[in-house]
């Protein structure tokens, strides 16, 4: 199955470069491009891509609002696309906001091509974190500036299994990998993930892991 990608960047040359790179890869097809956030939202609705590569700073509607709109989409549309945020700098505060807005992960524009392709594939598969180490660094970099540990919002009580699953999610494991590690079925893992998302009141895995880091449940420093 071909992964359908929508490219969103206000810089034409970034789009042509990404398009050339992605199109040269079997199994990935660039179905459209958008030059700002507003266009991104309408194109995502029209083209129904699997993955949206989204620049953050754009005129009119920025990548954060666009991410929120694309991910929330219209429920009748079925599965919304996975958004991967493209950024120029690693410690960009916008990245964090974009993740909270529902982006699946983030990627530096200067990332090696292999990372770019891996990000697109993993985002399309949808059940593992993108670059868990990067996410951890991002949270811990923020942590230094954020509240004291005592002021962090605690997690709601979790069952032992849910706690195991959350820790495994933070390490970037997919549902299948978690199932293998905990000697349970994939369906069981999916159930745990579902109840975790509900308990933590988050939309997706990325946000669940961010919550886990922020609450100190998983130490970002480790």
């Amino acid at each position: 199955m071909t992964i359908r990608v929508l490219l969103v960047d206000d810089e034409l040359l970034v789009r042509t470069g990404l398009r050339a790179t992605l199109s040269s890869e079997p199994g990935i097809e660039v179905v459209g491009e958008a030059g700002d956030g507003a266009e991104a939202v309408s194109e995502a609705r029209r083209l129904r891509p699997d993955v949206v590569l989204m620049d953050v700073r754009m005129p009119r509607v920025d990548g954060i609002s666009a991410t929120r709109l694309v991910v929330e989409g219209n429920d009748s549309d079925g599965q919304p696309p996975a958004v991967v945020v493209l950024t120029t700098f690693e410690n960009d505060d916008y990245v964090y906001d974009a993740l909270l807005a529902g982006a699946r992960g983030f990627l530096l524009k200067r990332a090696p091509v292999e990372d770019l392709l891996a990000a697109v594939r993993m985002a399309a598969e949808g059940d593992a974190l993108l670059f868990p180490a990067k996410l951890r660094d991002l949270v811990s970099a923020r942590d230094g500036r954020a509240a004291e540990p005592s002021e962090r919002p605690p997690l709601p009580p979790l069952s032992e299994r849910e706690a195991d699953v959350l820790r495994a999610m933070a390490r970037g494991l997919s549902n299948a990998e978690i199932a293998a590690e905990l000697y349970v079925g994939v369906e069981t893992v999916k159930t745990h993930v579902g109840s975790l998302l509900a308990k933590l009141r988050v939309r997706d895995r990325t946000q669940a892991v961010i919550r886990a880091y922020e609450s100190g449940f998983v130490a970002p420093g480790l």
Binding site: E11, L13, V14, T16, G17, L18, R19, A20, T21, S24, T88, F89, L108, K109, R110, P112, V113, L116
Partner: peptide, 22 residues
Amino acid sequence: IHDSVGHALSLVTVQAAAARRV
């Protein structure tokens, strides 16, 4: 610097990576 040079370097990376692949 963030806006100008960082932006330009990202663009250069993306274009160079694409050129190498095709």
